[in-house]
Computed example of a mutant assay.
Amino acid sequence: MAAGDIVLRLCNASFGAIEAVRRSLGRPGVETISTAELHAAMNSSQSPPVLVDVRSDAERAVSRIPGAITQQEFEATSDETLAGRRVVTYCTVGGRSYWYARRLAASGIDAANYRDSILGWCRAGLPLESPDGEATNAVHPYWRIFHVPDRYDVKT
């Protein structure tokens, strides 16, 4: 097993354990959304979720999941624009997005963490876009230890 896959498994196990403890203490949980669920929601005729990219400027400068906005853009958006829409956060492997989704959920926002994040999106062979909205195969995987399918151009 590759080092990146070990890190992904450790992250998933760690955040799962944190959630289990939080829920056992009666604290609000953070829901997760799978790649298939997010892809379906983004392409639904119903109001799509607000997809918030919490990665670093360097990562976002390479690409994003189509339709995503930055954390800064989200925080500057009026409540009326977001009314009734679920917020889904993502990063590279789901850690930074978990913490942000947890903060949003604690403040009463309907938020979920896309735990598979951009690596899961790429592993499903789904499209990316550049910051200016153009289709791209470039992706910043945070660390080179994370496997990205060959059809993507890794930029770090």
Rank of each mutant, 00 (worst) to 15 (best):
V54F: 10
E19M: 02
S117K: 01
T32Y: 07
Y98P: 10
V50G: 02
W99Q: 13
A20W: 06
T89I: 09
E80D: 14
R22K: 13
S56M: 07
R9K: 12
C122T: 06
Q72M: 05
E37N: 11
G120A: 05
I69F: 02
F146N: 02
S47N: 14
L25Q: 13
L38Q: 04
A2T: 15
I6C: 00
R115N: 11
G16E: 06
Y114A: 05
P149R: 00
G26R: 02
G108C: 10
I109M: 06
E31P: 12
I118P: 02
T35C: 10
R96F: 07
L10T: 07
G84K: 06
T77M: 14
Y142H: 15
L128P: 02
G95Q: 15
T32H: 08
R60I: 11
H147V: 09
S107D: 11
I6H: 00
L82I: 05
R123Q: 15
A124L: 03
K155P: 06
T81W: 09
N113L: 03
G29E: 08
W121T: 00
K155H: 06
L82Q: 05
G120F: 04
L38F: 09
V7A: 15
P48L: 05
A2D: 15
R9P: 09
A68V: 03
A111T: 00
G120Q: 00
I109A: 04
L126Y: 07
A2M: 15
S47L: 14
E37H: 10
A36M: 10
P48W: 03
F146H: 05
H39K: 08
P28M: 08
N43W: 04
R22G: 07
G67Q: 03
L38D: 07
Q46R: 11
S24R: 08
S44T: 06
R85M: 07
R115F: 13
F74H: 09
Y100T: 10
C91H: 07
T136Q: 10
D150C: 06
Q46A: 12
R103H: 11
V30K: 02
E73D: 14
V54E: 09
G84V: 04
D57W: 12
A138D: 08
I18L: 13
S45W: 11
A101S: 12
G95W: 15
A68I: 03
S107T: 10
I65P: 02
P127E: 06
S107E: 11
P49F: 04
L10Y: 00
S107N: 09
C11M: 13
F146V: 00
A124V: 03
Y90T: 04
W143T: 13
S45F: 12
K155F: 01
R9N: 11
D57Y: 13
R123G: 13
V148A: 02
S97I: 06
A58Y: 14
D53H: 04
A101K: 07
I18E: 13
L10W: 00
D5Y: 01
R86M: 05
Y98K: 05
W99T: 12
I33K: 02
A41L: 09
A41N: 09
I6M: 00
A20G: 03
S47V: 15
G108R: 09
W99I: 10
V62A: 10
A17P: 12
L119P: 04
F74G: 01
R9W: 08
Y90E: 03
H39Y: 11
